[in-house]
Design a protein around this nucleic acid. Structure first.
Length: 344
DNA sequence: AATGCGGGGAA
DNA sequence: TTCCCAGCATT
């Protein structure tokens, strides 16, 4: 039988996948795309990549971008710590002369860059002989070579890594890595993979043993909690009260409104002075996160008098400027329903 | 080793 | 509904 790599690379010749970060390959664009694509489908990430590529021509420009603008650009993409780490890394690179690290360890030392991303950037930008292991690779390798350990366990990860090392093509790191991920994404898919026309089917453990639907094996289950969120949208003279979420909680570094406790109202001690009346309730709406099922209700308040406390983290924003700030995707429902758009 | 962290697409 | 996606940081 031909080698795994030659079979894989021959298959890769038969497909074409045009991706914008390959337009004019450079380490800045490769890095940017890899961060954006973490736990994110290529189709979902592309518009964000284009937006970032257009806004930032250099690492320096990214490093000098304000936090507010960066979060606004990332708004809606999820896993917002990626944006924060991207920014941190840009500053580190800029402060140390503007050059990216060109070793695996150097890359992995940057915030937001773990084993996968270091291997991806290293191989794609510098031709370093390091194999990537992402969700696609886990699937392809565990099926073809019959890895029956949980890919989310220490043993399973070690087995996958060892197996990839054995079939990896050190002469063509970038081509191999690209090909195996494309193979996983376009052919050896989680469901409905066309095994009958697969170039590996004669040697595929999962296909030969009718275990395609069972591999890769995942052991750990995510437990979800139900959670209610209640926000008071307090309007005062055409402005709306918001704050930045800074706690160790969901949507960190995005903004929200005054948060009400379970069945409590506005705590007047949060303000120097406040006089208000309820002006309707909207919701609840359901919003799903990986670990939480959210039920969100918006309580509209109109304030006749409002004096903020000294040192408070709340601030008032003109209604038409509200969308200049980054908010959770779930708030789109409220903004749409109340015709709150960014006025240009 | 376990947990937290978004949002969307596919079946 | 359930699963998964070019994962990583924190505890």
């Amino acid at each position: 039988m031909a080698s795994f790599s030659s079979t894989l690379l021959s298959w890769h010749e038969t497909i074409q996948r045009e991706l914008p970060w390959k337009d004019n390959p450079n380490v800045f664009h490769i890095w940017l795309s890899e961060i954006i694509l973490q736990q994110t489908r290529v189709e979902q990430g592309i518009p964000y990549f284009l937006k970032f590529r257009n806004r930032f021509k250099t690492v320096k420009e990214l490093a000098e971008c304000s936090d507010e603008e960066l979060m606004k650009l990332w708004e809606g993409l999820g896993y917002y710590s990626r944006a924060r780490n991207l920014h941190k890394a840009a500053k580190l690179i800029h402060d140390s002369g503007g050059n990216f690290p060109d070793t695996y360890e150097g890359l992995k030392a940057l915030p937001g860059i773990g084993p996968y991303t270091a291997a991806a950037i290293g191989s794609f930008a510098y031709g370093l002989p390091v194999p990537v292991v992402d969700g696609n690779v886990n699937r392809v390798i565990s099926r073809i070579f019959g890895i029956r350990e949980g890919i989310d366990t220490k043993e399973g990860k070690a087995l996958i890594e060892k197996t990839v090392e054995q079939v990896f093509d050190k002469e063509k790191p970038a081509a191999f890595n690209q090909a195996i991920m494309d193979f996983g994404a376009l052919f050896c898919k989680p469901k409905n993979s066309d095994c009958n026309s697969c170039v590996f089917n004669d040697d595929c453990y999962a296909f030969q043993n009718e275990m395609v639907s069972e591999l890769p094996l995942k052991v750990k289950k995510i437990k979800k909690v139900n959670r209610s969120l209640n926000f008071a949208v307090i309007s005062y003279r055409g402005k709306i009260l918001i704050k930045k979420r800074i706690g160790k909680d969901i949507w960190r570094h995005l903004h929200d409104f005054y948060e009400l406790t379970a069945d409590g109202g506005i705590n007047e001690e949060d303000f120097s002075a406040i006089d208000y009346k309820l002006d309707g309730i909207q919701g609840p709406i359901k919003h799903v996160l990986t670990h939480q099922n959210l039920s969100i209700t918006f309580h509209n308040y109109e304030a006749q008098k409002l004096i903020l406390k000294n040192g408070t983290s709340y601030f008032l924003v003109e209604r038409e400027n509200l969308r200049k700030f980054a908010f959770p995707k779930a708030f789109d429902w409220y903004f749409d329903k109340n015709s709150i758009y960014l006025k240009y």
